[in-house]
């Protein structure tokens, strides 16, 4: 084969490779992308179902991955709505602005973080300080809390979880920004809320935290107080809505600036009475 032939071959190969990649780039009618907090995924899916049933139109795609993943997707422009169970950090906002993304926050529901133990556990109530000591490794035995001589197995969510970050900031660091407390290295990092539920159900020495929506009667929820003076409160619709339960948080939507019409119409549905009824049905706390 002479060099002409080789050149021709090369051109053919190059063309094929280009065609191959070009085929992957074509995109049809885009669905609204909703991505982020694993705590909110089930809720968002329920909203999606309700919305699509009501309007028979726009397709929505809901993905989990954690609040951080939602922010990352919002910043890189691959999602329309980021689901978040914590507020966006200053650092993330700066990074977003650098990429010409301007996050806009909107509260869509409330949630209480439930501290759960095995039903056979005698402990009834804890203060935030005691919880912090457990998760930083200062208290390692149930005896120190008036229980039997058993090692405490502390369970946390993974670092990609908004619940992890929220618990870190409001419990482990006692709500103080500058506090140097960290989760002890010995704390087990579980990949999902369901994994925490499974371990708590089968392990009498375990203590973990989950969203209100994951609580069922196979675990025991502890009453929590800000300090020893109380009051010790259990999380339920009322205490969380009134923000009296000490570890309550807002569930948030983040969009890039003012959203386009079809995204806005979904947000309007979420805030409507029908949308807030879905919140209650999914065991979270409505804002209205």
């Amino acid at each position: 084969m002479n060099w002409h032939g080789k050149l021709l071959d090369l051109a053919v190969v190059a063309l094929m490779v280009m065609l191959f990649f070009a085929a992957g780039c074509g995109r049809g009618n885009k669905a609204i992308q909703v991505k982020g907090s694993d705590t909110m995924v089930n809720l968002a899916e329920a909203w999606t179902e309700g919305y699509m049933e009501k309007y028979q139109a726009n397709a929505l795609a809901v993905t989990g991955g954690g609040s951080g993943a939602g922010f990352a997707a919002l910043i890189s422009g691959t999602t329309d709505i980021a689901l978040a169970s914590r507020e966006m950090h200053q650092k993330e906002i700066l990074l977003a602005n650098k990429r010409r993304v301007f996050p806009k926050e909107l509260q869509v529901a409330s949630d209480g973080i439930v501290v759960v133990v095995h039903p056979s556990n005698q402990t009834e109530r804890l203060t935030i300080k005691q919880l912090s000591d457990i998760f930083t490794g200062k208290i390692t035995n149930w005896r120190a809390l008036g229980g039997p001589d058993r090692k405490i197995v502390a369970l946390s969510r993974e670092r990609n979880s908004g619940t992890h970050v929220f618990f870190l900031e409001s419990v482990v660091k006692l709500g103080q920004k500058k506090n140097p407390n960290e989760f002890a290295a010995e704390v087990l990092m579980m990949p999902s809320s369901q994994a925490i539920v499974e371990e708590v159900v089968s392990n009498p020495s375990a203590i973990g935290y989950i969203g209100l929506g994951y609580l069922n009667n196979r675990q025991k929820a502890l009453a929590i107080a800000k300090d020893e003076n109380g009051p010790y409160l259990v999380p339920n619709l009322r205490t969380v809505k009134e923000k009296r339960y000490p570890i309550s948080r807002s569930l948030l939507f983040y969009t890039n600036g003012t959203p386009e019409t079809r995204v806005q119409s979904f947000i309007d549905y979420v805030l409507s009475p029908a949308g807030q009824a879905v919140v209650k049905k999914m065991d979270f706390v409505p804002i209205k």
Binding site: G65, G66, S67, G68, A69, F71, A72, I75, S76, K91, E92, L95, E158, R159, N160, S161, M189, P191
Partner: peptide, 11 residues
């Protein structure tokens, strides 16, 4: 696997 979702690209 556990942390890739959280990590903001460029951090």
């Amino acid at each position: 696997a556990a942390e890739m979702g959280e990590a903001v690209s460029g951090s």
